[in-house]
Design a binder for these strands. Structure first.
Lengths: 221, 221, 221, 221
DNA sequence: CATGAATGAGAGTTCATTCAT
DNA sequence: TATGAATGAACTCTCATTCAT
């Protein structure tokens, strides 16, 4: 990063468009080929931009990947923050959170995989990856503590470990579904996750009290 | 893979030793640097073998990685197959399986990560990765069905989805612990996983009935 | 050089200022980084001028360097032409010329070095470099011939070779002092050069008439 | 310098030959094009070696240039150290030293120029350049002091400054002759230099007492 | 078989110059 | 004229694989 490339957003409309085209093209190519196998020429070719123009906007392959990854992180953060409407029942909240996370992961699975791929050797992306995951787990921790205070969740569980594992369960499921082609009925997945989660923290889980549509899950992009 | 390298075991003792040294060195270097950043020279250097000799034993970098990966798969398979002694209570069986898997993952985490890293672009390793995981999940499926037949586990659950998710939960936990440095008390992890698992399939889980040592968990390789 | 840039002086005051700023900035950057390592962006950045404007005033990096070099040549020419007041004694004339040359070189050493650096591959700058040097040597030739005619300098010397060598001696001394950090007392340098020069052409050089501190009592011979 | 290239001399005869061919080719190309304009491909092409083989022997363009420069320094050192036979008269010693230096410079002029060219930005080569020059000047200092002790050279001169300037005079003359095409009769040059030098340090210089051949000057490589 | 030098097709990055606005 | 983004040829260095010894 030698500072030659425009640091912030380029000032002109044309520049903004070109930069955006590069980021979009980069995301596609990174998803298709991974980080190492992505060539700058591949990005510029897809963006319809001259090779050298890449370096007008980004200092390196890492830099544009960071840009892509930040966008992904934003989307995942939004999904993690999305809460069910006030007054929603605990189990529906869990169902909602699970569904939103799966939806978000579905849209970002391949690029998330690339972020994870390079994270061992790029601390920056490792952090980003852990932050995305961390936020989701934090929400589970907070939600579980609230349920404990309300007296509906078991009070004898290790909330941190439990939240990490339940979050991991959903994340891993997302990976299997969207990266490794494991096939399950989406409703069954959400319902099974909800059951495991609810029972795991000591809620009384019975048959799905309402259809998934009613709680806004699986909005199908 | 042009078949130039010895296909089976090399006939001489010396050759066998060299080949073994290469595989061992390769595993170490792959763990340290990942697949892309591993150099043939790095492997031969660590193995104390001449550069050119590499191609006497292996056709390519992929070939030796495959050899390494097969070894890892074997170790993981063994862990997945390990069952608690006959007569063990269901919850102790779960605790046992969880502990064995975590132990096996701890010993193979880094190389598993590398296998996963390259799996998107190498169908062979993708299959291997899925097989390792698949065997573990199959065992959960079988175990759960047995518990259903015995009438101790809920009968209304989707066993395939449940097993995939519980397996994923444990696997993801292993990743967080051994690859991303998430810190948890190992006993708490095993116990929390056991609780989530047991409750999730409808068993009556209460306080840990015995200390972890007694069921052979955390055997420290 | 396609002639797109304004050939002569730009007509407007604003343009003249910009051009001047570019030349001044160019000289500084060339001095600091040499020709190859100087970037157009470095020049425009220091001049506070838009990148693209550079080509409004100059056709190429060579063109602006030529402009800079011409300025340097002018300064050096002035120094070479500077003669001691009429009636000055021969040795004082030599001392004067030496001092003026050293002063001029001190002010232009770094850029002179750059001119010389690129001279092997740019005939234009090679000529310029040789002209600067040539004028100085010519003055020495003329002065020496005059002294020969006056009967105070040896008549059996090859004036061209002698002048070239004496000029080179002073020039080389300037290079060592101002480019390579060789440390000498400036007065000693001037005096030593004067002595070598004077004695070399056969003048009677005795004690420096202006430095009473200097010891140096010569043998009567 | 990442240490991949063979550090010392390559062990095999073949390797030695290849390395030598590269150094020889490099010297030629550096002389023709200067440091910046020399391409690795130019060196390997001339040496009849594959592009990649360059990096088997050298880590970088700087590394091979250093090798070339060390060779040149060696030749120049030898010339500087060369002394006239015992019993040679002082003026003949000066004539000898001058001639040897000019001969050595003639053979190394272009590469010396390249060393100087890059010296401002490469401290290593700057040192080398100054060492070459320094040794020659030291010899002059030593010789002059001896002549002072013998009572034949002026005792009131600043030997360090005088030696630097006389050495610089010869060096500069060499540059003009061999780099800038200034034309002088070689014998006249040697004789003029000898005269200026001798008279400058106070020796009684008269007409050349013998022909240059007799003192081993201008040995034509 | 053992050895390690030889090979050369890329890869990312630079930057003088051009050109659209 | 002023601006700064656009262009793409060029360059160095890498390294899996081959091959001569």
């Amino acid at each position: 990063m030698n500072g030659r490339a425009t640091t912030g957003r380029p000032p002109t409309e044309r520049g903004r468009r070109k930069r955006g085209a590069l980021v979009q093209a980069a995301r596609e190519v990174f998803e298709e080929r991974g980080f190492e196998d992505t060539r700058i020429a591949g990005i510029t070719g897809r963006a319809g931009v001259a090779y050298g123009s890449f370096y007008t906007y980004f200092d390196s392959k890492e830099a544009i990947f960071h840009e892509v990854a930040k966008g992904v992180a934003g989307e995942m953060f939004d999904a993690a923050r999305s809460a069910a409407p006030p007054g929603t029942e605990p189990i529906d909240r869990i169902r909602h959170a699970t569904g939103r996370f799966l939806d978000a992961y579905r849209d970002n699975a391949r690029i998330m995989q690339v972020i994870e791929q390079i994270s061992p050797r790029h601390p920056l992306f490792r952090s980003l990856f852990l932050e995305i995951r961390g936020l989701f787990v934090e929400r589970i921790v907070a939600g579980t503590r609230r349920l404990q205070e309300e007296g509906v969740a078991s009070s004898d569980i290790d909330v941190a470990a439990t939240a990490s594992m339940l979050g991991g369960m959903v994340e891993h499921t997302a990976r299997m579904l969207y990266l490794y082609g494991e096939e399950h009925d989406p409703e069954v997945v959400v319902e099974t996750a909800t059951r495991l989660w609810a029972r795991g923290i000591g809620l009384d889980y019975e048959d799905p009290p309402r259809s998934p549509e009613e709680v806004g899950v699986r909005d199908g992009k």
